[in-house]
Amino acid sequence: MEWLAALTAGGLAGIGMWLLLDRNLIRVVLGVAILGNAINLGVLTSGRFSGTDAAFVTATTVPADPANPLPQALVLTAIVIGFGLFAFALAVLKSVRESHGITTTDRVTEVTEEPAPDAEEVGLQVHQDDADVHHNEGQPEGLEVRR
């Protein structure tokens, strides 16, 4: 059973890495998500799949063949955290794509390498280009590339 899970984790990790190395930002973010799930499966497998009963001790009974509960607890934590981070990554991805028309990793590098705009440091104004986004709300944004 472990070998099947290990192979699956390895395959998923491979797919995740492949997506991660893509130029398209959507694929990069999906790659992180798939890699995260591959690693979750790996952590679960690392606890071995011995035991068939729930590891739950009551006042009267002790399970005869309990499964290892620790990796399950670890993976549950990791899944919850991973879900939150993935949601945040998607939000940033949406904003970067739809408000600013950045769709590739090369473009991300180009934009961050731009010289700092003057008077940027005067407080924390909401940027004009962000404010514009609100006018578009309600319209179907779709996945078209807007530059």
């Binding site: 890699l35 690693i39 952590v43 990554a89 970067v96 991300v108 934009v111 940027h127 280009d129």
Partner: peptide, 27 residues
């Protein structure tokens, strides 16, 4: 925080590579 094109692009880089590091740590 504060948004803007340059800042969100930087966030993207920061986010993906730090997530990757954390995943390696988890594994």
């Amino acid at each position: 925080l504060g948004g803007g094109k340059r800042r969100l692009a930087g966030t993207m880089t920061y986010l993906v590579l730090n997530l990757l590091a954390t995943l390696v740590f988890l594994l």
